[in-house]
């Protein structure tokens, strides 16, 4: 395990103290993926999402010291998602204004963003966070397992039944259960760790 996880101080707390030069890089490393998936979840295409990601990061960089970290009151990721939503909205609003003569329509994105109110954003933030952390956890741990175990688990995540998985890989169903339960245990540990280290 690398050094950065030695402390239970979260990444955000470190970042806010701004004592550590590396903490921003670290923040980008771990959060840009999250920001990206949230933007994509608004229905934005890949290239635009990349551009917006940079916008959002700059805004976070500027706004972060002002963010009052109060875990109970407002989660960081909700705050972040509001910021992402606004950035995305503004981007498409100005684009729409500029490009209206050329008959290019951003109405779809805009209208869907319009629909998104604060509780809605909170939901998205949570859902994407869970997915993001879980997937990251999977990337971290999957190399510890055999190909067979990995495929079995991935299949089970795609809601295949044990029976079908067993048939697909030509292994006994009991092995499927063993693989699943072992990986599940490890995954839950890793998710818990990532959530604690990165979360806010």
């Amino acid at each position: 395990m690398s050094e950065k996880y030695n402390t239970r101080e979260t990444l955000l707390q470190k970042l806010q103290k701004a004592e550590d030069e590396n903490s921003w890089d670290e923040f980008v490393k771990y959060y840009e993926g999250y920001i990206y998936v949230v933007i994509r979840s608004f229905g934005v295409d890949m290239n635009t999402s990349e551009d917006l990601l940079q916008d959002v990061l700059i805004k976070v960089w500027k706004a972060l010291p002002k963010f009052e970290y109060q875990n109970e009151k407002c989660r960081f990721r909700t705050w972040l998602c509001v910021l992402i939503r606004n950035t995305t909205y503004n981007h498409f609003k100005s684009k729409a204004n500029r490009q209206s003569q050329q008959n290019v329509s951003y109405d779809n994105v805009l209208s869907s963003l319009d629909m998104i109110n604060e509780p809605e954003i909170d939901k998205i933030a949570e859902l994407e966070w869970k997915s993001y952390i879980s997937n990251m956890a999977w990337n971290n741990v999957k190399n510890s397992f055999s190909d067979m175990a990995r495929q079995t688990f991935e299949d089970s995540m795609n809601e295949m039944s044990n029976e079908d998985i067993a048939e697909k890989h030509d292994i006994p169903e009991s092995s499927v259960r063993v693989h699943k339960s072992r990986i599940r245990k490890v995954m839950i540990k890793e998710i818990a760790r990532l959530n604690l280290e990165l979360g806010g």
Partner: peptide, 14 residues
């Protein structure tokens, strides 16, 4: 980006 390949089903583990 690699995140595009993320499987949202994993969220259930969370």
């Amino acid at each position: 980006r690699p995140e595009d390949a993320f499987n949202k089903n994993f969220a259930s583990l969370f």
